[in-house]
Amino acid sequence: MNKMKINEIKALLNEMDDIPTIEQYFQHESRIGAKKAIQSRINALMKIEQLKIEYHEKLTHESKYPNKIICGVDEVGRGPLAGEVVACAVILNDGHYFLGLNDSKKLSKQKRAALNEALLQQVDFGIGIATVEEIDKYNIYEATKMAMKRAISNLKQTPEVLLIDAMKLDTDLEEVSIIKGDQNSISIAAASVIAKEYRDQMMKEYSELYPGYDFEHNAGYGTKHHLEGITRLGITPIHRKSFEPIKSMLNNQNN
């Protein structure tokens, strides 16, 4: 055992996925470097086990509706000063298992991007958008409902049950409004990730059309750089004119 090099031990550990087996196999290992590698692998496996537990816990709402087509619905972009509100509806594939799937705000950019790529290849999803004009005309809450309904209509399948993040849409389908749904439902979490990635890409494209507002980094939210851009360059067509401080700025210009 002690004749194995540390790199050889690491390579072997990467092939082992059972903690008791690892502990038994390396029980006589005494080198500090080797022990660190062993503990690192054990910690990684423990994290995976925890993620598996959390994944199954987030299927609680879905499990209440066996043999029904369940759709998770979420939105991104209620709070920004600029850009559309984007909703996503997701019907997960049979045997789905997207380890680490969670509310998009709780994921790193790299993890979110990887999950988004996997989801797009395997699930039935629809995107719905409400424009800045609709947000200003109807208010952000009503515009969000519009975006969500459009997302549902863009699915390939017709869902039977809607799991919605803290909203009621008043459709003809069975609806379940879930507080913090993107943290408590895998279907809603999936919708959250896809919607977030989709809207972020939109804002990156807007950053090229309207440079100077830092849209590629702030996604339209009222950050310091964004507000400085408004002061310096003015209001763009994608700014929400019913939102402060843009509303007051327009009123001052008109007076």
Rank of each mutant, 00 (worst) to 15 (best):
K5R: 14
K10Q: 13
A11N: 14
A11V: 07
E15A: 13
I19Q: 01
T21S: 13
Q24G: 05
Q27P: 00
Q27L: 04
E29L: 06
R31C: 05
I38H: 10
Q39K: 14
I42V: 15
H56E: 15
K58F: 00
T60W: 00
G83E: 08
I91D: 03
L92R: 00
N93S: 13
G100F: 04
K106W: 00
L107Q: 13
L107F: 14
Q110N: 15
K111M: 14
A114C: 06
N116L: 03
L119D: 06
Q122R: 12
F125V: 10
G126T: 04
A130S: 14
T131P: 01
V132R: 00
Y138E: 12
K149L: 12
R150M: 07
S153V: 01
Q157C: 08
E160F: 07
V161G: 01
L163I: 07
K168R: 12
D172G: 10
L173V: 04
V176T: 06
S177D: 06
S177P: 04
I178T: 04
G181I: 04
I186P: 00
M203T: 06
K204I: 13
E216C: 05
G220L: 11
G222F: 07
R240N: 04
E244N: 11
I246V: 15
I246K: 05
S248P: 03
Q253S: 09
Q253R: 11
N255Q: 12
